[in-house]
Write a protein that binds this DNA or RNA. Structure first.
Lengths: 157, 157
DNA sequence: TCTAGATTGTTATGATCTATAACAGTAATG
DNA sequence: CATTACTGTTATAGATCATAACAATCTAGA
């Protein structure tokens, strides 16, 4: 960095003002989400998990026997895109596709012991990540943030 | 819909519990952001604008003469990816690439009258969209949400 | 029961988005 | 003046996502 950045935006002629965008909830949501997702991806990378793969594993452990279509709905992704995610989890021995006696089309997804182990480790890593990310937040503020986010999403659920 | 959805998740054997994920700020951020962005895209589509193109136009109108590198930084995207966005805005007559007398490498991006017009229309549409999206929120709650989002993002700025 | 329609998982595919590397032209620095 | 850095650009590859189509299977109505 050869050219020093000026500290005060009011005296810096090169400063780009984005107040119009920053007054929009949608823009702040986008920017904040991008940063947090990128950060979270780095947290899960050492475990060999992507964000969506982690989420799928969590739901399979918490809902042993769930089918792929319902899992895709819960994750808000397309069935077709879930296939490779489940393939990945299965090939790594974290879950199994087991047959459903009453419906030969469907698979019941169940975690293996290794899957439950990975679940615990990944969740610890993510919790630690969130604690670091939100270290200047009160617990009540985090609760407020999550609550507000859910309320934005809720009417469309 | 041939199979009726049960109302109470506690009595619905097919319900997928996602409470573990829903306790994570990052997951709620991701889900909420996805929904809002998709919705916002629909709002801007009739104007022929994508979310990122809209954001670029706003910054160019609010910062007439800004250069592409600074604009890319402000938008948190790569310079190379901004090129096509600026191309699009220019080809539609909303902005102009004008020469910078003191630096023949750089372009100063300035809005045209049509660009300022589009800015006003698009901003109205987005404001209306946000009002509808957040119609069950108090103004103070929206302010709180935006403030919390900025604070999550801030330490990394 | 039989048949038409719906559902499940899957594959293939195209659109979009993003990051990276490399380049020519130009500016800044010592 | 020579080296280094910066600007906009192009090309490219990876990731993400939605859509369409398919075979196998189930469901529901005649």
């Amino acid at each position: 960095m050869t050219r020093a950045a000026k500290a005060d935006p009011h005296t810096d002629p090169d400063h780009v003002s984005d107040h119009t965008l920053r007054d929009l909830a949608g823009y702040n949501l986008r920017r904040t989400s991008q940063i947090v997702q990128a950060d979270l991806a780095k947290t899960l990378e050492p475990l060999g998990l992507r964000m969506i793969t982690f989420a799928a594993l969590v739901l399979i452990v918490d809902n042993a026997g769930v089918r792929q279509t319902r899992l895709a709905n819960a994750l808000a992704i397309e069935r077709s895109n879930l296939v490779l995610i489940v393939d990945d989890l299965e090939q790594r021995g974290l879950i199994q596709r087991t047959q459903v006696p009453t419906d030969r089309r469907a698979y019941a997804l169940v975690p293996t012991d290794a899957g439950r182990d990975m679940y615990a480790r990944a969740l610890n890593a993510v919790h630690a990540h969130e604690a670091a990310l939100l270290n200047n937040f009160e617990a009540s503020e985090i609760a407020t943030l999550i609550s507000l986010l859910k309320r934005v999403e809720a009417p469309r659920a």
